[in-house]
Amino acid sequence: MEILSIIFIVGGLFFLIVAAIGVIRLPDVFSRSHAVSLTDSLGAFLMLVGIALHDELGKNTLKILVVLALLYILNPVIAHATIRAAVRAGLKPWKKENS
């Protein structure tokens, strides 16, 4: 059980690192938001499942699942609100030519 939870946590860390590299490397707001959503969806899922497997089953597992459900419901809403504000402010997606 311990080995399994370590595997899950390391997998989650891999996706978190990839997302951080993406946030630094990608050229504009819209593509950076894709990297942030990669963190939220897969990285946080693998980390939290690893932590839930490490603890014994009980109340804490249920609470970790509640936090995970909150993340999955609230994060798309926040990302959508930010991107809608960016579109309404008149930002254009990045193009290869004018870089």
């Binding site: 819209f30 959508h80 809608r84 579109v87 997606p93």
Partner: peptide, 23 residues
């Protein structure tokens, strides 16, 4: 809209009745 945003690679930018603008 939430499914589109949750899938990395596509993100919903604007919703008007049943027309969506997606990045």
């Amino acid at each position: 809209g939430n499914s589109i945003t949750l899938t990395p690679g596509t993100i919903t930018a604007e919703v008007d009745h049943n027309k969506l603008i997606v990045h």
